[in-house]
Amino acid sequence: MAIIDLMTALMGVSMGFLAFLVIGGISGASAWIFYPGQSKGPKPVKLLLAVFLGFVVAFTSSYLGQYLGFFQSGQMLEWLSAIFAACLVGCIFTALAK
Score class of each variant (00 low, 15 high):
I23N: 00
G24N: 10
G25Q: 01
G25L: 00
I26A: 08
I26D: 03
S27I: 00
S27N: 04
S27W: 00
S27L: 02
S27G: 03
A29P: 09
A29F: 07
A29S: 09
S30C: 03
S30V: 09
A31Y: 06
A31W: 11
A31V: 03
A31T: 13
A31I: 06
A31L: 07
A31K: 09
W32K: 14
W32L: 09
W32C: 04
W32G: 14
I33A: 10
I33L: 15
I33S: 08
F34R: 15
Y35P: 02
Y35F: 08
Y35S: 05
Y35A: 01
P36I: 10
G37C: 01
G37A: 12
S39I: 13
S39F: 12
S39W: 05
K40C: 04
K40G: 05
G41H: 04
G41N: 06
G41M: 01
G41L: 06
G41T: 11
G41K: 08
P42C: 07
K43H: 02
K43M: 12
K43L: 04
K43S: 14
P44Q: 12
P44C: 07
P44K: 00
V45E: 11
V45K: 07
V45S: 07
V45R: 08
K46H: 07
L47E: 12
L47Y: 12
L49H: 04
F52S: 13
F52P: 07
F52D: 05
L53V: 15
L53C: 11
L53A: 10
G54H: 01
G54V: 02
G54Q: 03
G54C: 00
F55A: 10
F55N: 04
V56E: 08
V56N: 01
V56P: 01
V57F: 15
V57E: 02
V57Q: 04
A58N: 01
A58L: 06
A58Y: 10
S61F: 14
S61E: 05
S62E: 07
S62C: 11
Y63R: 05
Y63C: 05
L64E: 10
L64K: 12
L64S: 13
G65C: 07
G65H: 01
Q66T: 08
Q66L: 15
Q66D: 06
Y67E: 12
Y67N: 09
L68S: 05
L68W: 08
L68G: 02
